[in-house]
Design a protein around this nucleic acid. Structure first.
Length: 514
RNA sequence: GGUCCGUUCGUCUAGGGGUUAGGACGUCAGGUUUUCAUCCUGGUAACGGGGGUUCGAUUCCCCCACGGACUACCA
């Protein structure tokens, strides 16, 4: 029976653990996505944990923003601060009392120590080293010269702690060990502890650092796989050592470090600070900075569909190995594996994001799109006729990238042009045009059949009898009806706007173009 | 500076010891369309450099270059 417990595979449990220091950016969304895909694929749990141990960088509203973003993307978590779960609480500030004892355990076992150095002391040491062309590191080479429980007497340490002297707890990094471990994406990776420093695990403010907190929580929450950004790779050995120091190595999760998403233009990873200064949103949802009031655009408000954003994000650093490029969330779940995740950073391509959106828009039903366009028309004060709007939708949907392109591409179904495109006018408005248009107008007035096909037959008959080209009629007529060369089949437009409006626009245009 | 990770068309990528190095976005040209968009067809364009290993390397190994990440009492 006992043996059976050992071989029983653990249920997959992954977590997305952002810190609420601002809006989540799309790199974060992708990390969440990959976690979600892996969890669902393995019928495991996807947990949201808020890592708010840095009180100085706390931003109000960020936590709610993160949850709303995940919801918008359809990335549902099984446990989290708002929905609870078996390992509550899911906010590190609410678990504050838990961490100190673990840090002290590490001291008892000789893996950590108290340090009383003031930040200023360390700062000036860094500067001093720098001026000598060296880099100061709190490690085996320096720790014995500093103020900590390794150099102070036991009585002195006790006294300092009892008098609440500000202090931190540092990890005692082994002097010279090779750490060889495995990353799900990169394979074997090696590090040398000689280059690592004695990281602070517990801060003077009474809160743990990321390194301590995330690890204890991952252990307590029975996380089996840590899927995070590549920026964590350098501290991976510290985490491995920490698991060892706690004696938890058998429960250590497997790690996957995702390649970063880079700026489109060139250097560096895409960051929150980029805002939407680069001409595209970097945030899933619009965000208003609570301190400065500055507004950054979001994918949602810019007219992107969450399915398109998810699809696009999944393909940044991952691919199915086939030529298929459209995947729903469920299909991504089926197809996702770590061995198809790339190792190198992926430059974000705003053009491709737009293209994905265009494709998703095109495949949406006319009904669904119609319901998206109705509010646009309502805002403009037009009476709403869903049946009519649906017909317009069918006619123009393939020329839209975003729902809000609707008005620009379809206004002429609702109101006549305000002006006439100069280029087009020059090209198609000949001396005899007014005469031709005037006689066409009379034909239109008289006809009983104002259907698209009927009108087309009518005009074709006219050009044959007068022996002129189709374009001599159609092009100027379009100019009068639409105001430019855009739009679907001309007679479809005429049918939609009706005889009365058609004649009205012809008359108005004839007057204005002289 | 140091450490770690990476390097196939402009971008996202497939591939893998012998291939016409494939696809997608973009771009260009042609076709369809009375126009625009869509759509179709076609073109452009890549294995960073140098050494090995090998009959043969873009593919395996090493070095260099370049890029990125990290180097806080931030995550």
């Amino acid at each position: 029976m006992v043996l059976k417990l050992f071989v029983m595979p653990r249920k997959v449990r992954v977590r997305f653990a952002p810190s609420p220091t601002g809006p989540l950016h799309i790199g974060g969304v992708r990390t969440a996505l990959f976690n979600y895909l892996f969890a669902v694929k393995h019928k495991g749990d996807f947990i949201l944990r808020i890592e708010d141990t840095d009180q100085a960088r706390f931003v109000p509203g960020a936590e709610a923003y993160i949850m709303e973003s995940l919801k918008w993307c359809g990335l549902h978590y099984n446990e989290g601060p708002d929905i609870g779960g078996p390992h509550e609480p899911y906010r590190q500030s609410d678990r504050k009392d838990l961490y100190r004892q673990y840090a002290e355990n590490l001291i008892s076992s000789g893996n950590a120590y108290y340090a009383f150095d003031e930040p200023d002391t360390l700062d000036s040491l860094r500067k001093q080293y720098e001026s000598e062309g060296k880099v100061f590191q709190y490690d085996a080479s320096t720790r014995l010269t500093l103020r900590n429980s390794l150099t102070l007497s036991e009585e002195e340490v006790t006294r300092l702690i009892e008098t609440s002297t500000p202090h931190v707890i540092r990890f005692k990094m082994p002097e010279n060990e090779e750490i060889r471990t495995t990353d799900l994406i990169r394979g074997e990776v090696t590090f040398h502890t000689a280059l690592l420093d004695d990281k602070v695990l517990y801060k003077a403010d009474g809160l743990p650092t990321y390194h301590l907190a995330h690890l204890i929580d991952d252990f307590l929450m029975e996380i089996t796989h840590v899927i995070r950004g590549e920026e964590w790779l350098p501290s991976f050995p510290l985490h491995v050592l920490l698991y060892k120091a706690f004696g938890w190595e058998n429960d250590m999760p497997q790690y996957a470090h995702l390649p970063l998403i880079l700026k489109p233009g060139g250097q560096g990873k895409l960051s929150k600070r980029d805002g939407d200064k680069m001409g595209f949103p970097v945030f899933p949802l619009q965000w208003t900075d609570p301190f400065t009031g500055e507004v950054s655009s979001g994918y949602r408000e810019s007219g992107y569909f969450p399915e398109a954003v998810i699809n696009m994000l999944a393909f940044l650093g991952w691919n199915p190995g086939t030529e298929a490029e459209f995947f729903t969330l469920d299909e991504l779940v089926d197809a996702f594996t770590f061995d198809r995740v790339g190792k190198s950073g992926a430059r974000f391509d705003p053009e491709k994001a737009k293209w994905y959106n265009q494709q998703y828009l095109k495949y949406k039903s006319d009904e669904e799109l119609t319901s998206l366009f109705i509010p646009i028309l309502q805002k403009k004060g037009f009476p709403i006729n869903p049946r009519h709007i649906k017909k317009v939708t069918a006619l123009i949907k393939e020329r839209l990238v975003f729902p809000q392109d609707f008005w620009e591409q379809a206004f002429y179904f609702f109101e006549g042009p305000e002006s006439y495109d100069q280029q087009m006018q020059k090209k198609v408005w000949k001396e005899d045009t007014p005469g031709i248009i005037a006689s066409v107008r009379e034909l239109l007035k008289e006809t009983k059949d104002f259907s698209s096909a009927g009108l087309e037959a009518l005009i074709k008959n006219y050009i044959e009898q007068n022996n002129i080209g189709f374009g001599r009629v159609a092009a100027p007529l379009r100019l009068l009806i639409v105001g430019s060369g855009m739009g679907p089949h001309l007679f479809d437009i005429l049918e939609m706007i009706g005889k009365e409006e058609t004649i009205r626009r012809i008359n108005k245009g004839l007057e204005m173009i002289q």
